[in-house]
Design a binder for these strands. Structure first.
Lengths: 130, 130
DNA sequence: CTAGGGGTTGGAGCGCGCTCCAGGTCAAGC
DNA sequence: GCTTGACCTGGAGCGCGCTCCAACCCCTAG
């Protein structure tokens, strides 16, 4: 599996893959005769896991820390779990905050709805609305 | 109320406030005799609303669009509501995605828990774990 | 034998959202 | 009058996470 295939299967660009390798997020893969990277199926799992971490807003530095621990083998399992737990707790908090934002936006939208349908102006009428 | 007070009350830095003004997110406030900005209470509401939008990941360009509409008065209420609704829908989606990530992380953490307590290696034991 | 379409490297550049800085003005307190 | 400190402006710089580029290499098909 070469880099373009791997890119297709993960949704990461080849450039990003090489970048992740440079900065130590991904282990350097084997090379074929021509010096091209050859990826293996289980690299996919790791890449997809990284993508999840990224999705949840984990900064690259933290992913690097995780990757370093992982490279050191099973002895670091507890440390990795702790890192993950800290990140998860942050994520929980962010989810709660976003849920609050969402409900506020719903309110705001409802307010606009009222203001638009009922003639002209809004309940809190100042002439200017956020 | 001058810029430092306003900054304290919103949590934005004075620099950020001037920046938001430059790029049209905030209306230029009045000035006192010495040319200093004088903010008014209702600017606070707007700034706090911007902060909410930012929290939910709205890009500045979109906030600018909203601000421009707002500056044009009540006639743009429907357009503003639509913008907000589109943003809210995106937010809903992101919340769902994050919730999924969260549950995956919980699983992963549980797996680490099992692996750590029960002697040595994990269920999917490859020798390497994500 | 040649052309084309992958791949490789190191390093520069970019878009976003600020953040900082130099150099200046102004107002209040001692 | 002088110091102090908050404010002003325009513009440069920054940290993040890529993204793009030139210049080169290699393999395959025609």
């Amino acid at each position: 599996m070469q880099i373009s295939d791997f890119a297709r299967q993960t949704g990461l660009s080849a450039d990003t893959l090489r970048y992740y390798e440079r900065i130590g997020l991904m282990q350097p893969p084997l090379r074929d005769g021509g010096g091209r990277r050859v990826y293996r199926a289980r690299d996919l799992d790791w890449a997809r896991f990284l993508i999840r971490l990224r999705q949840t807003g984990m900064p690259i530095a933290e992913m690097q820390a995780y990757a370093r621990l992982r490279a050191q083998g099973d002895a670091t399992a507890a440390a990795r779990r702790d890192l993950l737990m800290r990140h998860r707790d942050g994520l929980r908090q962010r989810l709660a905050d976003l849920a609050e934002c969402l409900s506020l936006m719903d309110q705001k939208i409802a307010l606009y709805g009222a203001m638009i349908s009922s003639g002209k102006d809004a309940p809190d009428a100042t002439g200017h609305h956020s």
